[in-house]
Design a protein around this nucleic acid. Structure first.
Lengths: 205, 205
DNA sequence: AATTTCAGCGTACAAGTGTAAGCTTAATGT
DNA sequence: ACATTAAGCTTACACTTGTACGCTGAAATT
């Protein structure tokens, strides 16, 4: 027996189908701007014009995707931090968690990376905003854990996120074994930043 | 009196026109993959089909652009380093030089940033290669100047380049006064990395 | 002077795009 | 029970795209 669906349920389902279809389309060779409405519709299994019942245009959909991707990433890192104990290494755990996410959700991470430097100013600032949230959450954590000023924590957090995201971009295009190497390098690099800030705190200049 | 041109000269001139037209087209809202052959031809002042007399396709042209952009960047940094004296700060001079280049040649820097995470694997690895050259040259400089192992110099150089390029991406979308702020932050962040490596060298672990 | 080469052009076509207009049909409101 | 609403469909149109084909005219070669 099939379950009776309300109209609203059905609509939300289709909407989600479109979003999933878009993420599926956004592989290594497709960006949001090169993604066509008709292509998404085809994968989602609807007529091209039906797309408009859910989104104003592809831009509108794109912003939704960026928001979702950013949200997932932040939730991931929050759960990673909650797993960090007093004696486990915060850097190692965070890097490993993020790297795992990247390799298992390539397309989602790709959206953020691509649109960060993409051709739409709206997308760029949307991603920028997500990254700022990301940096802010890390900064708060660092400030509390390392007992340093907010200013220093912000600088440290930003540097770290930049290194990690850039490394993530590199990891997307390499083999699993290369990825482990990249992760190890990143851990050292983050440690340098942390050490440097600590040192700077002790004797500025 | 008009100067008589040989056929070869004329051809090279048109070729350069195409390259310049492409750089002109590659503004904030156009990437190599969203750039159409017809559009380039229009700006270059030639018929669409004439394009094929110079490049196999837009991909072919794109690789040329990436090479040129990377070359310009490396030459710039080399000349910057030659200007660094014993008492001038290497980080400050380098960051200022690069930031100046970025703001004055936005489109050229954009090509590298965009295609680094773009939709073409060929472009991505071409940019990756240019960045590796960039990192290598900086690494050699650091190794010689700071008297550290090649391994440490490589890690430091990579971290620095990642921070700088990521900051450059941010700078592309902001006002001149914001850009100065970004430059100042980057200088601190690079200093942290340098300090951290120095510290690590003294007492590993 | 005669011949070959080739950069650049115009035309043409198939394929893909966004989206406007209007229809169908089943869930919802009364 | 009937009227309304709205998700999804089909058709249609005006564009843009890459590129195949063949021509022209001037430079280069012989």
């Amino acid at each position: 027996m099939t379950i009776k669906k309300t109209r609203e349920q059905q609509k939300q389902e289709t909407r989600q189908n479109i979003i999933n279809a878009a993420f599926d389309c956004l592989d290594a060779e497709k960006s949001l701007s090169s993604l066509s409405l008709r292509e998404i519709a085809r994968v989602a299994g609807i007529a091209p014009t039906s797309f408009y019942r859910h989104f104003k245009d592809v831009n509108d959909l794109g912003l939704t995707l960026v928001d979702e991707a950013g949200l997932m990433l932040r939730q991931l890192m929050r759960s990673a931090r909650s797993r960090i104990t007093v004696d486990s290494n915060a850097i190692d755990t965070s890097v490993d968690t993020l790297m795992e996410f990247i390799t298992e959700n390539k397309n989602i991470f790709r959206v953020l990376l691509r649109e960060h430097t993409g051709t739409s100013a709206e997308f760029r600032s949307a991603v920028q905003r997500e990254i700022q949230y990301f940096i802010k959450e890390l900064s708060d954590y660092i400030m509390h854990r390392q007992q340093i000023s907010q200013h220093l924590a912000d600088l440290q957090s930003e540097a770290m996120v930049r290194i990690v995201f850039s490394a993530g971009a590199h990891a997307l295009d390499t083999s699993a074994c290369q990825q482990r190497l990249i992760a190890e390098k990143v851990k050292y690099q983050l440690m340098f930043v942390q050490l440097g800030v600590k040192q700077f705190k002790l004797k500025p200049e």
